[in-house]
Design a protein around this nucleic acid. Structure first.
Length: 771
DNA sequence: TGACTGTGGGTTTTT
DNA sequence: CCCACAGTCA
């Protein structure tokens, strides 16, 4: 029982309370994951069979980590615990039970792009204006409905919602919603919300007593990050664990202060409801922070105090004081990028940090570019998360669409995607007729292709017949043949391979590589999930041999992956990600960037106190990711929509006591100007340093006095081709080239407001400041 | 059919 | 500024 000794008394109590409902309120860095994993390990040690244990998380990554850590304590039986994301576990259950609610077990999963594209098609068919019925806005409204169990019928009965739609001049949203549901169903497809919603329906309707089966099976249920669950997720949890005679072994872990998904329907009410619904509840509060040093923990406490509603708790640490929080004031977003990169380099040397100890966090993904630029200049390796995942790339989606079609030909989105790609003589006009026929008969395009005679050319008919034959051939092999072989045949027979192989550009080769990577991934998937992967299947009624290795299972898995789930190849890189994706992670050195009003907090939230509180929690999450070094930066001017805009420092900075900050030297190295008297006056608000021409001003003064006051020459090594510099006499200019030996370099510069087109300037003498 | 151009619109966060 | 999309041309 040595693992119990690694826990503090409260943690140990929580872990060893194995009967009845348990709520663990866990502050950042308080050993939340440890408690969760050790609790499961403890169950296993006490002879609870692994398949009776369910653990639900939000990301694949945390599920994987959890499994690994359980395995370290109890060995391989950990792999049989049902640990995964809500979406992936539910997809798996739905795969087994699909027929009970009228879906094929090989149902497709529509990702956000698929969903949007279905909505676009519906909007178009209904002759509605896509500028009014903005597809992505409709998508989020539908998503909101599903997450709150609002069916189209309830929608129509809901006076408020109907009123909202009328007020927004889009009274037909509910009709789109209805159409959308019908289409998805016909196509044998579920979107992300359906994976929860349809499971709820299944459980609620309980055909064949299916719910009782799962109740009996999952006797120990765990939920991580409970503060991020939405109404629907909680409803499912309740169905599963709250009933007459239930042992109510529900173990939930969360922190209201880290709730950052309210915008997606997560609600703190779930924690409060949990206390009401499970009356035997035992609550444990983990308040000791083992992660971060003093200034970081204190700053976090001070900030979160400004939120209105929260469960009372105080996070404390007995880790030593160490570093203060570095605060970087930068003139522009570009300078922010440069200085963060510089600081990282310096940091690495001074403290011998590997790249993997460092992360740059930001509010919006678009901010990554500046950092990438400057990290590249310093030859620092980095990886950006939150971009397009592997499976979202066009070529991969194309191949996957073919695979989806082989498994489920009703999949309309897949069909649309590939029916004429690569081109096979089925024109847009033909596709339009096919689609219209399908709608008219309330069937899928695939069905229409089979049974509705179309008024098209013989050539088009022939092409369609050929296409059909090809897909049918794959379809007949989909369940019997090896997924890997089938996929490889599909790549060739579809014409994708031939289409791609002609492209020998570097990008083309990369795309080809990606396709091969999909094939490899399928082989690997089959190997690790195939028959024999599990030796006591008969005890685990959900594991049917072979089923888990099917092509359908693979396709359903990959749609739920994000780029955070891609394997890293062991290289040592700096992490760049949004704060949202950093939730649950920790790094020795964290940079929280872009701390400006309107950016963080986001301008979308400025009007709304709840929104602001959520932004504040997000800031709380951001700074508590840091173990030892925390650097916070903001820019006074930032490009937005291609134009430079003056920015105020974020209000959140004022909420941290100045004694936790160290103001770092550099160009804008005054104190935080919002609440202490700036040592350099006139850096606020609209007084954009004049070296940027504001769009409305026709002729900016040639030597803006304010910029001159702030002028600080940059070292010669920063002056390289392509950078923008400021010269005290000539103003803003761009470096066209740099030549000559080190120490005696000459730069060719084009200044914006200068009669001469170019000037050659000897760097040794000239004072230039990189902007 | 594909490649190119202009324009219009948009930035919050994600399974 | 950056992207997606519609429309035009070869």
């Amino acid at each position: 029982m040595s693992y119990l000794e690694e826990l503090n008394p409260i943690q140990r109590q929580a872990v060893t309370t194995i009967e009845g409902p348990v709520l663990v309120i866990a502050g950042p860095g308080s050993g939340k994951t440890r408690v969760l994993t050790y609790r499961i390990a403890h169950l296993l040690q006490n002879h609870v069979p692994p398949w009776e244990i369910l653990a639900l998380t939000f990301t694949n990554k945390s599920a994987r980590e959890m499994k690994e850590r359980i395995e370290q304590v109890v060995g391989p039986s950990a792999q049989k615990v049902w640990a995964g994301t809500f979406h992936s576990i539910f997809a798996r259950i739905l795969r087994y039970e699909a027929d009970k609610i009228g879906y094929p077990s090989s149902f497709s999963i529509y990702d956000t792009d698929d969903t949007t594209s279905v909505l676009k098609a519906i909007i178009k068919e209904m002759n509605l204006d896509p500028n009014v019925y903005h597809p992505s806005a409709i998508r989020s409204r539908i998503s909101m409905c599903k997450s709150n169990l609002i069916t189209p019928i309830l929608y129509r009965q809901n006076v408020d919602m109907m009123q909202q739609d009328r007020a927004a001049k889009r009274p037909y949203v509910v009709d789109i919603y209805e159409q959308y549901i019908a289409r998805c169903f016909r196509s044998g497809a579920m979107d992300f919300d359906d994976l929860l919603y349809q499971l709820y329906r299944l459980f609620q309707q309980n055909p064949g007593n299916v719910l009782d089966k799962y109740r009996a099976r999952f006797r120990y249920v765990h939920v991580d990050e409970f503060q991020d669950t939405n109404f629907l997720q909680y409803a499912i949890l309740r169905l599963l664990t709250k009933y007459d005679g239930s042992p109510e072994n529900v173990f939930i872990v969360g922190d209201d202060a880290q709730s950052i998904y309210a915008f997606r329907g997560a609600t703190i009410d779930n924690i409060l409801d949990f206390e009401k619904d499970y009356t035997n509840l035992q609550t444990f509060k983990l308040e000791q922070n083992y992660r971060s040093t003093f200034h970081i923990v204190s700053a976090a406490n001070e900030v979160i105090l400004n939120n209105r509603r929260q469960l009372p708790k105080t996070i404390w640490t007995n880790r030593e004081e160490r570093q203060k929080i570095k605060l970087l004031r930068c003139l522009t977003d570009d300078e922010e990028g440069r200085r963060v990169a510089d600081l990282i380099l310096e940091h690495k040397h001074r403290y011998h940090l590997p790249n993997s100890d460092i992360a740059i966090l930001y509010r919006t993904n678009a901010q990554s570019r500046k950092f990438e630029e400057h990290l590249r200049k310093l030859n620092l390796l980095y990886r950006v998360y939150g971009g397009m995942s592997f499976y979202q790339r066009k070529e991969v989606k194309d191949l996957v669409a073919y695979l989806r079609l082989a498994v489920n030909p009703q999949d309309e989105e897949a069909l649309r995607r590939v029916i004429n790609f690569p081109t096979r003589g089925i024109s847009d006009a033909t596709i339009g007729k096919l689609s219209a026929a399908a709608s008219a008969h309330e069937m899928t395009m695939w069905e229409a292709m089979i049974s509705v005679p179309l008024d098209v050319t013989e050539r088009a008919k022939k092409s369609m017949a050929q296409f059909r034959k090809m897909v049918e051939a794959w379809q007949s092999r989909a369940t019997s043949d090896s997924a890997a072989r089938l996929a490889s045949d599909i790549l060739r027979q579809s014409g994708l391979f031939d289409f791609m192989k002609n492209d020998t550009s570097p990008e083309g080769l990369g795309r080809m590589e990606n396709l091969n990577a999909v094939l490899d991934a399928i082989s690997e998937f089959v190997d690790s999930n195939g028959p024999g992967a599990d030796d006591d299947t008969e005890l685990d009624f959900l594991r049917r041999p072979g089923e888990e290795a099917s092509l359908a299972a693979y396709l359903q898995t990959i749609t739920l992956l994000t780029d955070a789930d891609e394997k890293n190849d062991g290289t040592d890189y700096i992490t760049l990600m949004s704060i949202h994706s950093a939730k649950g992670l920790e790094f020795k050195s964290i940079f929280v960037t872009g701390m400006e009003e309107g950016l963080f907090p986001s301008f979308m939230s400025l009007e709304d106190p709840n929104g602001l509180d959520e932004e504040r929690r997000l800031f709380y999450v951001a700074i508590t990711r840091a173990k030892e070094f925390l650097t916070i930066s903001y820019a006074q001017n930032r490009y937005r929509y291609g134009q430079i805009k003056a920015c105020e420092p974020s209000r959140f900075l004022e909420e941290v006591g100045t004694d936790h900050f160290e103001f770092v030297g550099g160009l804008g190295s005054a104190r935080l100007n919002a609440h202490s008297q700036p040592t350099m006056p006139s850096q606020r608000g609209a007084s954009v340093s004049g070296n940027f021409s504001t769009p409305r001003r026709l002729k900016p003064p040639p030597v803006p006095p304010k910029a001159a006051a702030n002028f600080q020459a940059s070292p010669a090594e920063y002056i390289v081709e392509g950078v923008t510099v400021f010269h005290q006499k000539f103003g803003e200019g761009k470096i066209l080239s740099v030549e000559g030996p080190a120490g005696n370099k000459i730069a060719t510069i084009r200044f914006k407001n200068d009669d001469m087109s170019e000037r050659r300037i000897v760097l040794k003498f000239a004072k230039l400041q990189v902007l």
